[in-house]
Amino acid sequence: MTEHTHSEAEYDAITDAAAHWCMRLHANDCTEQERQAFAQWRDAHPLHAFEYEAMLEIWDVAGDLPSPAPVVTMVRAKPQTPWRTMGIAAAVCALALPLAAFSGWHLGWLPNSYQHFESTDHVRTVTLNDGSQVELNLGSELTYSNYKDQRQVTLKKGEAFFSVSHDTRHPFIVKAAEGRIRVTGTQFNVWMYEDQVKVNLIEGSVLVSSNDDLPDDGLRLGPAMQASYRRGDFTPRISDTYDNDSSLAWRQGKLVLDDLALTDALPLINRYLDKPLMVADNSTGSIHIGGIYNIKEINGLVKSLPRVLPVYLTRNANGNLVVNAIPQKTPKS
């Protein structure tokens, strides 16, 4: 049986349909009937699902569009569609409309290049379109978009070490959780796990903000300084990097735990696990662990915990391994 080869017109029609469904499914008034119709369209051909996934990436990039100046209108009618929704929709449509994409670039609304990178079971070094180098730790993912007035990276998960090409007129911005790191050219590391972020500066300077909605550019870091924040923090916490800091040991394939309480060690360990390891209680979390481990063998570290610490492992209802302290025997009087 000969496989059907799509014509250019058929490909364009599939792209248009994918853009339509991407916008409808993100609309507040999308109905259940529309969702069912979309599912039928998506499942009708593998190319439909492929094109829709591509549209979702464009939608994700467009969600970071810079805010335009507000438009004042005297018309009082039904509530207007938010500018961000319109901007995202324009970005999705622009995939099939070169003129719209060209105008969007000059307005600073759309990137003229987009890259997506993931690392799974090995440390990966990638080159961004601006010439910057990025090392990705295991299980990390980021996107790069080049706008007219800025270069923008979104760290979706994991950890990355950046060597940024210098360009004072075209700042380099890394978004992580709800915060951002703004630079022009430097070397720094960004670690993210769930809602926690830590930035270590190696060379140059960066501005770190824990809240992307705040108007200022954040707090400045110099070499041998670090900033940390959680999602929702108003400002990041700034501190000096201590002499034996091991934050970059992952670049040599190592995880260094320097006599840390389990509560502090678990976010570092869990970065490499499919299901996060948990502690049963505060008493267990206060037990300390140390050592140097291969980042590809963290599952082995977990299994070895009962041999090196006074703990045993159980599994909770969600399938997570749980570390439990062995009860201390009370001496007989």
Rank of each mutant, 00 (worst) to 15 (best):
N282S: 11
G204N: 11
A27W: 08
N129H: 13
V134G: 01
E159P: 00
L214H: 01
A317N: 14
D149C: 12
R182N: 12
R220W: 00
T5D: 09
Q133A: 13
V61Q: 03
S246G: 11
N316G: 14
S165M: 15
G108T: 13
D243N: 07
R251Y: 03
V208K: 02
L201N: 04
A227S: 06
F172A: 07
N316R: 14
M86C: 13
F234D: 10
K275M: 14
V134I: 06
T143K: 03
V153P: 00
T125F: 00
K303T: 01
S333D: 09
D264N: 09
I287T: 09
I181S: 02
T241I: 15
A69M: 11
D149S: 15
S113R: 07
A9N: 10
A176N: 03
W109F: 13
L214W: 00
A227I: 03
M55Q: 04
R315W: 12
Q150G: 08
N282P: 00
V208I: 06
L305E: 03
V279N: 00
E135Q: 13
F50D: 14
K275P: 08
L257A: 11
E34Q: 04
A265C: 07
D149T: 15
T143Q: 08
F50R: 15
N137C: 01
G185A: 14
S103N: 03
T5N: 14
Q152K: 15
V308A: 02
M192Q: 12
Y144V: 06
E194F: 10
E34M: 01
D274P: 08
L260P: 00
K156F: 05
N244D: 13
S119M: 05
P276F: 08
W41K: 07
V183G: 10
L321S: 08
Q196V: 04
G204T: 11
L221V: 06
A9S: 13
P68S: 07
I58K: 04
A62I: 02
S210W: 09
A54N: 03
D217S: 12
G291S: 10
A17H: 06
T31S: 15
D216E: 15
W109C: 04
C30A: 11
P98M: 11
G291I: 05
H288I: 07
S103F: 05
T235R: 07
K275W: 10
V126F: 04
A100Y: 08
C22W: 06
E118A: 06
Y144P: 00
P82Y: 04
R84L: 14
L219H: 00
A18F: 10
T168L: 12
V256G: 01
G319C: 10
V311F: 01
L65S: 10
D233T: 12
R231Q: 10
Y229K: 01
F162A: 07
D243T: 11
T284R: 01
A90N: 03
L309T: 10
D274E: 15
T120I: 07
A325G: 09
N270Q: 09
A227E: 01
N244H: 14
R231L: 08
P267Q: 08
G104K: 02
R182H: 14
L201E: 08
L305V: 07
S205W: 10
P276K: 02
T186E: 12
C30G: 02
E32A: 13
Q33H: 05
D264S: 09
S119P: 04
N299M: 09
N318S: 12
T168S: 14
A176P: 00
V164L: 13
S205V: 09
N137A: 03
